[in-house]
Design a binder for these strands. Structure first.
Lengths: 255, 255
DNA sequence: CGCCTACTTGATTGTCGTCAAGTGGCGTGG
DNA sequence: CCACGCCACTTGACGACAATCAAGTAGGCG
């Protein structure tokens, strides 16, 4: 079983963005030295969450962004009828709260799916930095735009793929994420429950369970609780209705 | 029949953002005088599109944003299997191309649904302005974040609503848009075809047609080709699975 | 006038959701 | 250490909503 929380460790120098290996990814750019120096200004307060612990609620006042260091976070909305709809899963390297910049309040809930460490980054600090550096400004804007493009790609997935294709695409996206972050593309663990996966993909839990079983029966994957092993990656690509492209590709949880 | 293209006319002073009534909405802020002066720098080239004419294609190099002045534009992607999936409809006041900032290329196609006038705004000009004014910078960032939040709200709609609720929510969103822009909330025309509506809402054309007919039979709306008249707004809210809130509310095409 | 496209309406099918029952892991408490 | 209950997940049977297939109507335009 893979436990990447063990590999992507909570840094000793938390709170010091300049010396943090991950700051580059968190704030989204290859920093020039001048920007790197300014990063010292940012008060990135580390925060440790237990499984099920809330980062913020829908309607909470927005003032800080959260960079995921380890673990996993889901963001979701609740409809007027009380139904929950998961918007996205956030893995290490992701920034949470970008959809709240337009308003004064968070438009969704955020909860840890596992033991999770995040860095709380004051949004005003980010804006101050952007005011000083056009590179930083552009990079941050790109970061937001990228999330937007990602959301839209997900809409395409929901609109054009059936149940099997959605789940296959979901697994592939996780596979790609792990590969891009130096982990195994074929062996990883699911930090979220079947119910969460089903909700995210707009399917019933039973449907997700059935498809997992079928993919295993067909020799495409091997699942044991939260541990997934992809045994036939090409088959998984085909099941997702995608063509396998070699080489690095752009980040996207579900493509 | 409503023809708002006749009301929101192509401005005589096109290309001069400072004197344009719509610049405030286009670039997304109540501008202070200093920013307004800078807007003169922006080369907003007007462009007139005929129905079916492409603004850009998926993969085209990104360099300019487009502000819709009149008419309507749809943005869509085509999957590897050649299926089309509409991402969004863009009405006067909308900015098109924000999802391309992260990459060098547009991630979708954009095509006019009707005779449409847009302003082509050089993205570098926008960034230059953002570099000079923190207010402008923040406002533009808000604009992008707002689109992201909107996309995510749409995901919730697709994930939690059935066919009837989706279509009702779609009509309500159009109604609210018209109301917020000084037009009738109950009488408006649909710039897009039934096929486009169906595709956008991830439904079959036949389903959309049937629901239109049923809502009309139930006395909720009255449709004649592209002209829609909402005869029972409260009923439409209930059909959408929403509660009617009085007073102005945040813009959202489908909530 | 006639064709074409957009839309409508009806009949049938199928995918996936719902309902129901059962399994297995895990923590709690005796 | 085992019994129990809980919860997450699995598996099967059935049903429903919406897609598909098919036919027909009505504008728009040559």
């Amino acid at each position: 079983m893979i436990n990447h929380a063990r590999i992507v460790q909570f840094p000793r120098n938390a709170g010091d963005c300049k010396r943090c290996q991950r700051a580059q990814k968190c704030l989204g750019l290859g920093l020039a030295t001048s920007e790197a120096a300014d990063l010292l200004d940012i008060s990135a307060r580390p925060k440790l969450l237990k499984r099920g612990e809330k980062l913020f609620n829908d309607g909470d006042e927005f003032s800080t962004l959260y960079a995921v260091r380890s673990g996993a976070v889901k963001t979701y909305k609740t409809t007027s009828e009380g139904e929950e709809q998961i918007i996205d899963f956030h893995l290490p390297g992701d920034l949470i709260g970008l959809n709240a910049i337009a308003g004064e309040h968070h438009p969704c809930h955020a909860v840890a799916l596992d033991t999770t460490s995040v860095c709380a980054i004051d949004f005003h600090d980010v804006m101050r930095l952007c005011g000083k550096s056009t590179r930083m400004q552009h990079a941050f804007l790109k970061r937001v735009s990228s999330c937007m493009a990602r959301d839209e790609q997900f809409v395409v997935t929901l609109g054009t793929k059936d149940a099997t294709q959605r789940l296959a695409a979901f697994l592939l996206a996780l596979s790609q994420y792990h590969e891009e972050n130096g982990f195994s593309a074929t062996e990883f663990s699911l930090p979220m429950s079947r119910t969460d996966i089903a909700n995210y993909l707009s399917l019933a839990v039973e449907t997700v369970s059935r498809i997992f079983s079928r993919l295993q029966r067909e020799g495409v994957i091997s699942v044991e609780r939260n541990a997934v092993s992809v045994t036939d990656l090409d088959h998984l690509y085909r099941a997702a209705g995608q063509i396998r492209r070699s080489g690095p590709r752009q980040r996207s949880v579900v493509q």
